[in-house]
Amino acid sequence: MNKLPLYVFVLVSTCLLFTACVKDTDFDQAEAISLTPIVELDLIYFNLQANRFFDSINSNPILTVSDTTDIRFLDDSSLQEYLKRADFYFKFTNSIPRDFQVDFQFLSETNDTAYVAGTAVSQGTVSTPVLTEFTQIVEGEDILRLTQANKVVVSVTIDSSAQNLEGNLNLKSKTTYYLEN
């Protein structure tokens, strides 16, 4: 039997398969691959009328009003793992001639306080609303606490109230999430 074709075939195959290589590469670098997206997301907003701070039936001032909402994505296990920093930005526009204290209490599923933040809001007038901006940067150990929370209680406290009080307190807010894996 003519062995020549076999030799040629083996030679060509060998050249093809054994000269093939992957070089000048370092696949261990895969360990260093890191996604670091920065995500901007709206948080909560409200419009509180001045008359919400006075019980006209009983003629009593209501100094603190509060409301609660779930924010269930916050204690998601992926977010717990990847969230490195969160910047909360609150923008108040106040046309009520009163100062306010606004507190944000982040609660865990078992209603334990995980994280708190708060700010004073300056008084304004109906004709000249006053802007108060407040930024809370959460990072390091605080992130671990924050990501235990899955709801937030917002308490708005007015320093004093009256029946004829006018204007409203507006809040717009967002969070910047710095993620990294």
Partner: peptide, 10 residues
């Protein structure tokens, strides 16, 4: 369109 969560303080 997502605007966030609107609290109404009932």
């Amino acid at each position: 369109t997502l605007d966030g969560i609107n609290l109404v303080f009932p």
